[in-house]
Computed example of a mutant assay.
Amino acid sequence: MSRAFVFPGQGAQTIGMGRELAEAYPAAKAVFDEVDDALNLKLSALIWEGEQDELTLTKNAQPALMATSLAAFRALEAEGVKITDAAYVAGHSLGEYSALAAAGALSVADAARLLRTRGEAMQSAVPVGIGAMAALLGLDFKTAAEVAREAAQGEVCQAANDNDPAQVVVSGHKAAVERAVEIAKEKGAKRAVLLPVSAPFHCSLMAPAAEVMAGALARIEMGVPKVPLIANVVAEPVHAGHEIEQLLVEQVTGSVRWRESVLWMAHHGVDEIWEIGAGKALSGMIRRIEKSVACRAVGTPDEVKAAAESLQG
């Protein structure tokens, strides 16, 4: 059996995530402590006892989700699971930073600081109310991209997330995205709805944030991951640190090619994927992309133990 470890993106955050892991595994608690120290703030207190609205702020959600994923991964390591038990790692948007930290290419502290910077830069790239994102359900990527082009009308509207065969997210100027919602319905979308997000991620409006991330990534040491990363913007494996840095910059304005990434892994022998961290959104997408791939969510102590035991069977 060949497996991949994947790491969730924004939207999976919930108050209390990772707390049971921190209580059960000292190595998991150490991750939250390391993130708190790196950011010089008690992010763990916000994650476990704060308000959902504050946790959902992009600058908080991004490092918080990475911390929870890495806590789950350290718990797995405490149970004898190794990164090399996976053939590949991948992450959805910010989840790429979690994947790189798990694979040893980034320190947890660097990942936390980069994601805090990324969250702040993405939030400030576009004034509130100027941009929007919408989920188009029931349209394939090609059709959704055509909808976005038709809706643009001189503004920005791009297919931002190719999540699964029937879910594509478009991003851009608010009026253009609203036009895309209506056009999508005319083209047979089952549903087309605006998303409750604070900025239009993964489109060209994020160019100022991409510049910020280019500078931030240039200041850190990106190592070689112990297993290849399936990168969002190319949907194939990358190994070299300098190439990964460039793709992380491109990812800010580029499409998250998740459907293609999962298909690439499935076509290259992966038949089991573990979603490590908060929530089970990626598992749902993966099942819709390729039914032959078995999915396992790993976000609680019980799930960590069950996952580790599955390797010993």
Score class of each variant (00 low, 15 high):
12 A>K: 09
8 P>R: 03
43 L>Y: 12
265 M>D: 00
291 K>N: 10
137 L>P: 01
14 T>I: 13
114 L>N: 04
307 A>T: 12
298 V>D: 00
202 H>I: 04
171 S>G: 07
304 V>T: 12
132 A>W: 07
39 L>Y: 03
156 V>N: 11
87 A>S: 04
186 E>T: 15
158 Q>G: 07
199 A>P: 04
27 A>W: 13
93 S>Q: 06
30 A>M: 11
87 A>G: 06
277 G>L: 12
180 A>K: 04
245 E>L: 15
251 Q>D: 12
305 K>G: 10
303 E>A: 09
296 R>A: 13
181 V>W: 14
98 S>Q: 11
272 E>K: 01
120 E>A: 14
64 A>D: 14
198 S>W: 05
233 V>M: 09
189 A>I: 10
304 V>Y: 03
276 I>Q: 06
3 R>G: 01
206 M>T: 13
61 A>P: 05
294 A>Q: 05
278 A>N: 06
294 A>C: 14
182 E>G: 15
254 G>R: 01
23 E>T: 15
7 F>E: 00
52 Q>L: 15
24 A>V: 04
279 G>V: 02
196 P>F: 08
109 A>V: 03
34 E>G: 09
199 A>H: 14
32 F>G: 01
226 K>E: 05
132 A>V: 14
110 D>Y: 06
42 K>E: 13
271 D>C: 03
233 V>C: 09
210 A>Q: 04
84 T>L: 03
168 V>P: 02
290 E>I: 03
299 G>L: 08
141 F>G: 01
287 R>E: 08
158 Q>D: 13
237 P>K: 11
303 E>H: 10
32 F>Q: 08
292 S>P: 08
159 A>M: 07
272 E>L: 05
72 A>E: 03
254 G>M: 07
120 E>F: 14
134 A>W: 10
82 K>I: 13
215 G>I: 15
169 V>N: 02
297 A>N: 12
124 S>M: 11
153 Q>T: 12
163 N>I: 01
262 V>W: 01
61 A>G: 11
87 A>M: 04
1 M>F: 11
187 K>N: 05
28 A>R: 01
127 P>S: 13
244 I>C: 09
56 T>H: 08
129 G>A: 13
118 R>T: 02
219 R>N: 07
153 Q>A: 12
119 G>E: 04
155 E>A: 12
172 G>M: 09
9 G>C: 11
277 G>M: 05
51 E>P: 06
46 L>H: 06
140 D>V: 07
107 S>W: 08
173 H>D: 05
67 A>N: 08
302 D>H: 09
221 E>P: 05
294 A>W: 02
212 V>H: 13
285 M>V: 04
295 C>D: 10
38 A>G: 06
303 E>G: 03
244 I>V: 15
213 M>D: 09
96 E>I: 04
43 L>N: 01
76 L>V: 02
171 S>T: 07
102 A>E: 01
69 S>L: 10
197 V>K: 10
197 V>D: 05
256 V>P: 09
286 I>H: 00
88 Y>L: 02
180 A>F: 11
114 L>W: 02
60 N>Y: 06
85 D>H: 00
131 G>E: 02
182 E>R: 12
291 K>D: 09
35 V>H: 05
222 M>V: 07
36 D>N: 15
65 L>V: 14
192 A>V: 09
134 A>H: 14
264 W>C: 02
141 F>A: 14
230 I>L: 00
61 A>Q: 04
233 V>K: 00
96 E>V: 06
274 W>Q: 08
253 T>D: 05
151 A>V: 09
89 V>T: 04
239 H>E: 02
186 E>D: 09
